[in-house]
Amino acid sequence: MTTTAEPTTEPTSGGGGTPLIELKNVGKSYGNIIALSGINLRVGAGEVTGVLGDNGAGKSTLIKIMAGLHQQTEGELLVDGVDTKFSSPKDALEQGIATVYQDLAVVSLMPVWRNFFLGQELRKKGFLRQLDANAMRATTKEELHKMGIDLPDVDAPIGSLSGGQRQCVAIARAIFFGARVLILDEPTAALGVKQSGMVLRYISAAKEQGFGVVFITHNPHHAYMVGDHFVLLNRGKQKLDCKYDEISLDDLTKEMAGGDELDTLTHELRR
């Protein structure tokens, strides 16, 4: 039976120590199209790195590189300080890097516990190797409870849960199966205020337990609530790289909205 992997690196909320994952001058081209160029990013244990950007900024390409779906065409990707090349998402998972995509890849009509163990089911000993449903139910409830998620019925279809609850189940699943770094793809994009708050609390809980989190979002308010470090992408390039105490929410929002371009537009519309 797989057990939760505890992070092996001491928390580095101050930015010191060896990052769990680091990108150095990473770029990605598809033929003549440059999707990313000169990206530098580091994620330490016990840190949330917010990666912000509008549609087309390069966030999806960045996710695919860190998740092992694509290899960069330039630069280095380091895991625990070691230059690493992922040939598949399985390679990334074996290094403890798990990605929770926006669509979650859940089977809506299946119960919560079946989705929690989807593809990695526990089986009873013996010739028939039947599914150990009781063990999976108990483990699912226990692991969700550890992370502050109290579901009254893990037999309920996962599609009956709120969007925030489904996100939290997916994150808890990734942690249980060995993640040290969580890459979260727009986890609050389609959620209301209350459900977004649930996910943000969960991100904060994961950070406090020593996990590294890459929080991909286009919402600077959400990023600022939990982030320790912010990277802003714009048309495939890195526009901003700063720590929490180096920027205010207003300035982060302004940079995200276009900075000087937004001031020019406001002046034009107010004339």
Results as ranks from 00 to 15, higher is better:
V82W: 11
G53P: 00
V100T: 05
E74S: 14
D263N: 11
I183G: 04
M136C: 09
V100E: 07
P89K: 13
T73K: 00
L184F: 07
D245L: 04
T84Y: 10
F117Y: 14
V112G: 09
E74C: 10
N219F: 04
L20I: 11
L182I: 03
I149M: 11
E94R: 15
F177N: 08
L144G: 03
H229I: 06
A35G: 05
P89Q: 14
A172D: 12
E22Y: 07
N134D: 15
M1T: 08
R201S: 13
K146G: 09
M198T: 05
T253D: 14
P157Q: 11
H218P: 00
R166K: 09
M147R: 02
R129Y: 05
K59L: 13
K85Y: 13
A257E: 10
E208N: 10
G96I: 14
S13W: 03
G53Y: 00
R123N: 08
H222P: 01
D150L: 06
G164N: 03
I171E: 05
F116T: 04
H70K: 02
N55P: 02
I149N: 01
V193C: 00
K194T: 09
A170N: 04
V231F: 01
M198W: 02
E94K: 15
A5W: 02
R166C: 04
F116Q: 03
G197L: 09
T2A: 08
L240H: 06
V226Q: 09
E76D: 15
S248F: 08
T61A: 02
Q95A: 15
T139K: 14
G75S: 10
G212D: 10
H222A: 15
V79D: 08
L249N: 12
L69E: 15
N115W: 10
G258K: 00
K141C: 10
